[in-house]
Design a protein around this nucleic acid. Structure first.
Lengths: 215, 215
DNA sequence: GCAACGTCGTGAAATTTTCCCGGCGTTCGT
DNA sequence: ACGAACGCCGGGAAAATTTCACGACGTTGC
């Protein structure tokens, strides 16, 4: 990788977007795109056959998602260098991606220079995180990143689960044999503990943390 | 437009993705990208100052969404030609976009040729829809299912989108330049029209219909 | 021109959310 | 054994939100 060109595998389900990566990366000497994949399975296959020095991977992919693709590639090659490049400006996703084995996380809103820098950093063995995500991670670290199951008592967690299951306050009260007032109080307390202001945010938080799977 | 080059305004909040459009379109004779915008407001401003022959517009934009941007541009110039190019493979979005005044709807999973063809079709005055969305529209027509996009007015749909984007009533009111009371009224009306009793059900419905993608 | 509809907003009632409170039982460290 | 801390349950009242009824305005379509 140091003497010759660094080879790159692009993974994104949008062909025009891959064209964008290509266009940006081609301007950099020492980088060469040798393959492209439109989904996770194809990325895995191509990684094994082409052995690129770096993978640039989107997260929202058909079939197995990007995170799972990262995990599989890393399972096959512990030294694989994978840079996640995604639209999700979300610290939670970044944590998951890095834990799955990614060596970098850059958002698509970043300017091309940020992507190029991240590519070089990862090739040099560093971990690359784009500034916006760095910032968000710092914020969540400071404010204590309310991780649902963690800050909630068992009872609160149960109520949250039922709330997400589309039950009304009255139905939950009956299920739990308590007063609707208690459920309402818990509902309010849950939102407070999780630091969300509305039910909509609550559902989204639950989705992020995998509390709500089937839609 | 027929004799000289056709001028194009690109709207997408991801710079690398704009680079992709550019790269694909540059290969076509007779097309020239003259401006780029990263959000709806900037798109509106640039449309007025640059008067491009065609706008290629993403839907998920910061601030006012793509649909609203389409509406405003068309309000200013009834003859504006706008081609929506988005990741949302969802017939509901397509319906809303066309109703708002877009002349085409192409998904980002489409091959570059499809985008190029759509650009030429829209410039020639036709309505361009990518095959996958055509198919989905046909299916929904057959099964006769009423999606959120069908029963909601454009304005209601826009408010729904903003609600799902974790905005508060006040923020939405400010974004749309209306009274918070109006937003609250619409919020209530939306829940009524969609037959849901709570915000939690609302989010779940939106998820089922693919209106909510980024978590 | 008129009817129908979308949009925006007000006001008042109905409901929900939130906050503060106390009681009860359990756990835990001293 | 004892107090302190905490989880759990709910009442009461204030605060905020939701809902409903209603009217105004512009546009569209017949």
């Amino acid at each position: 990788m140091s003497t010759a060109e660094a080879t790159i595998l692009l993974v994104d389900d949008h062909s025009v977007v891959r064209e964008g990566y290509r266009s940006v990366l081609q301007k950099q000497p020492g980088l060469r795109v040798i393959a492209e994949a439109a989904d996770g399975a194809e990325a895995y296959r191509l990684y094994k056959s082409e052995a690129p020095d770096l993978v640039i991977m989107d997260l929202s992919l058909p079939g197995i998602g990007g995170i799972e693709a990262v995990r599989r590639i890393r399972q096959w090659d512990k030294a694989a260098r994978i840079l996640v490049f995604t639209m999700h400006e979300n610290a939670g996703f970044a944590v998951q991606a890095i834990r799955a084995g990614a060596r970098g996380y850059v958002t698509k809103t970043s300017p091309p220079e940020t992507l190029v820098r991240a590519v070089k950093d990862v090739l040099a063995g560093k971990i690359a995180i784009s500034p916006d995500i760095d910032h968000e991670l710092a914020l969540s670290r400071i404010s204590g990143e309310s991780s649902a199951a963690d800050v909630l008592t068992p009872r609160e967690f149960e109520v949250l689960r039922l709330l997400l299951a589309e039950n009304t306050t009255e139905q939950i009260a009956e299920t739990l044999h308590v007063s609707p007032k208690t459920v309402a109080n818990l509902h309010s307390l849950i939102k407070d503990k999780l630091g969300v202001g509305s039910d909509i945010e609550l559902v989204r938080l639950a989705l992020r943390q995998g509390l709500l799977t089937e839609v």
